[in-house]
Amino acid sequence: MELTDILYEKTNGIAKITINRPQVYNAFRARTIQELIWSFRDAWDDNRVGVVILTGAGEKAFCVGGDQKEKGDEGGYDYSGGLGGGIGLEVENLHQTIRNIPKPVIAAVNGFAIGGGHVLHVICDLTIAAETAKFGQSGPKVGSYDAGFGSAYLARVVGEKKAREIWYLCEQYSAQEAKEMGLVNKIVPAEQLQQAAEEWAEKILEKSPTALKMLKYSFNADSANIQGISQLSMGSLAMFYNTPESEEGKNAFLEKRPVDFKKFRQ
């Protein structure tokens, strides 16, 4: 597959996948999701690969979720590709691929991990963050949500109360705050982030691949029911994107004005 939106390399048993759209804070479009799925599957099929590192290009962002400029008038995303449950993005497929690949996935968060980008790091097995990283949700601010792994699994990680705070308030949290709530395993200076991720990857490569695979399956089993919730979430999101309420969130973001959801409470 020709890669335009990501960088993909495999070195000494480590597959490194970099979202490469720094001009839009590594926001993803349909093409980006397709390339991510392809890369993860390639790493899955390559027996020489024992661990995957997911990161973002540049110093500002890991990923800030879906590119609002690619969101069309009919709610879905314009860029041609799989329907992804009707929203034009195969996000659910990507989430399942990251969870099911029988190899540990390390998120190296180099900047903003917001919205759909925040969900990506949550789903990864481990997260190492730069001191400058920022974490948070934005869906309810822009007329969107992830009522699957992005919320239900997040609650497993940080607890119900904190997960509701993250989604209801849509505030941003520092790397230290994220570590305190269990979202992050380790914090390092920004210039040491990639090295730290590679060091952890090398430690993982020293371990039994079968043992790691079975452990990942075991960890996943406890939250496997969220897959069904995720399917319902994406189906409802496809319908929601076609409403004036969702459009208000997108338009306010693109027009750089305050959003007005009050009229939808009348």
Rank of each mutant, 00 (worst) to 15 (best):
7 L>T: 06
235 G>V: 03
68 Q>G: 03
127 T>R: 02
249 G>A: 06
70 E>G: 13
34 Q>D: 10
220 N>W: 08
127 T>K: 01
123 I>E: 00
68 Q>P: 04
188 V>R: 06
93 N>W: 01
141 K>F: 11
167 W>A: 09
226 I>M: 07
216 K>V: 07
81 G>W: 01
15 A>W: 01
191 E>A: 12
260 D>F: 11
75 G>Q: 01
1 M>C: 11
149 F>Q: 03
54 L>T: 06
175 A>N: 04
224 A>W: 11
249 G>P: 02
160 E>W: 13
152 A>I: 04
98 I>F: 05
134 K>F: 08
29 R>A: 08
11 T>P: 02
67 D>T: 04
254 L>T: 03
178 A>E: 06
63 C>H: 05
1 M>P: 10
60 K>Q: 14
197 A>G: 13
45 D>R: 14
231 Q>C: 09
50 G>V: 05
218 S>Q: 12
237 L>Q: 05
144 S>G: 14
202 E>T: 06
261 F>P: 05
112 F>L: 14
121 H>T: 06
187 I>P: 00
25 Y>A: 06
252 A>H: 04
18 T>H: 01
129 A>W: 02
79 Y>S: 07
72 G>I: 03
73 D>F: 10
177 E>P: 00
60 K>E: 14
243 T>Q: 11
12 N>G: 07
157 V>N: 03
208 S>K: 09
148 G>M: 01
226 I>S: 00
256 K>W: 04
258 P>K: 03
29 R>M: 08
187 I>V: 08
56 G>C: 09
3 L>E: 06
256 K>I: 00
200 W>G: 02
236 S>I: 01
224 A>L: 12
221 A>P: 00
166 I>K: 01
136 G>A: 08
122 V>Y: 01
254 L>P: 03
262 K>T: 15
171 E>D: 15
92 E>M: 13
72 G>A: 15
73 D>Q: 13
92 E>N: 11
